[in-house]
């Protein structure tokens, strides 16, 4: 499937991909990571998170993985991003970057932070 077909991504999906990055995480860890990354704005509740995870598995954006050796809780399911998932995340980032450029040209972007 062409990554572009999935764009634009919904916030939960994008956040999950961001949170995963190169790592392998289980659900609650992702929740915390997303909370941290978005400064609390993209906080996911368990229901939404796991429904999203199920969907992303179906679409091939993430896959179940073996728990990492360090600090793993054997009972939990762990996930990592697939190559395709990373491509999609990149594509989404590129899309948003283009939009930000347009916004800057039209002076709609907030003041540059430092």
């Amino acid at each position: 499937m062409n990554p572009d077909e999935l764009l634009p991504l919904s916030p939960p999906v994008y956040h999950v991909l961001l949170a995963l990055g190169d790592e392998t995480l289980h659900g609650y860890a992702m929740m915390q990571a997303i909370d941290r990354l978005t400064g609390g704005a993209g906080k996911l509740l368990p229901g939404t998170l796991y429904a999203t995870l199920a969907r992303m598995v179906e679409t091939g954006l993430i896959e179940e993985a073996d728990p990492p050796d360090v600090g793993a809780d054997a009972r939990r399911r762990y996930y990592r991003a697939t190559a395709f998932g990373r491509k999609v995340a990149s594509a989404e980032t590129a899309r948003m970057a283009r939009l930000v450029e347009v916004a800057r040209a039209r002076r709609m972007a907030p003041e540059e932070a430092r």
Binding site: P8, L45, P46, T48, A51
Partner: peptide, 28 residues
């Protein structure tokens, strides 16, 4: 909030098997 979210998402799971939730940039 968590309970309500679970109910909503659960119902969505029951009634559709489509691609990503919120495909099109919307919330679930």
């Amino acid at each position: 909030r968590a309970a309500w979210d679970a109910v909503r998402q659960g119902w969505t799971e029951r009634t559709r098997r489509g691609p990503l939730p919120g495909h099109g940039g919307d919330t679930s």
